[in-house]
Amino acid sequence: MSGLLEIRNLRVHFPIGGGLFSKPKLLRALNGISLDVQEGEVLSIVGESGCGKSTLANAILGIQKPTSGKVLFEGKEIHHQRRRDIAERIQPIFQDPQSALNPRKTVKDLIAMPLRVRGAHSAKEIGRTVDEIMELVGLPQRLGHSYPTALSGGQRQRIAIGRALVTRPKLIVCDEPTSALDVSIQAQILNLLADLRAELNLTYVFISHDLSVVRHISDRVAVIYLGRIVELGPADDLLDDPLHPYTRKLRSAHLSTAPHQELPKPVFKGGFPDPTNPPLGCHFHPRCFDALEVCETHVPGSVRRGRSDVACHLYTGLGTPGDDMTEIRRTGSTEEE
């Protein structure tokens, strides 16, 4: 099965630091990501800050060159195509519309910009398309000549969405599109994204740290830890019944608004590791309460469980749980975080 977007063993490494006498360290932001996104689906990517979510978004948008591996859109390698052609079919929506919009342009100019860059349209055509888009994203015509600073956060995010849609793209990469918004506005924007998806048959890659938002909007979810996918599966399965110990911890750290909620005790062992010097084997093993001996030395491959894929030695059958190594690791020297 081939998808609209195919990511094959994608690696993005950044050299960090280094000077006259020291070698730069290598930050493996993405370390062998493989992922398919089907046309019309919403795939969410979750993980802690520093896990590589945004690097992955940039690689999909074609603005981050892979160190190795491929990103194929409609079967063609995107990094071999012209930037402008890719930008017409894959568009981003970012977290903070305030910084994503030029404050000196009016709403209509902002939305028209991608069409002007393309250059193949008359002013009349552009005007008509912009009006259609404004209607589509729920921006009243009277705001057309306003500047973004005069508008609310929700309206600004509508402009950003309108601008992303104006070239009629197939894939939208949403990087925390509602994190900067109040919950009442978040609900409006999530509803808008859902309506647009149905109306225009859009595909979303949705990056978020809010698991209840992810659950609401996604078909499938990929959990990333230090540049690797640790679990990938349908949103219900993954969030109701997480398989990977890391997904379980993320899930239990989510504060629900249920009135009888107690503070979770999702204490990892150890802090988020130094990404320039990640642990050997499974990157998560120093923080994992279920770690086995094999986790220290071997990177777990992805195993199918139900409808999910999980990369964990609890499921690969390479280690036997309950050996005395678990005890040793529990007392290992780590910081509580």
Binding site: A187, S212, V213, S256
Partner: peptide, 17 residues
């Protein structure tokens, strides 16, 4: 307005103010 983990509300529009 808040989507809830406990509810199966996917595909349903969220309430707004």
């Amino acid at each position: 307005c808040i989507p809830r983990m406990e509810d199966d509300d996917r595909g349903q529009p969220l309430n707004t103010i």
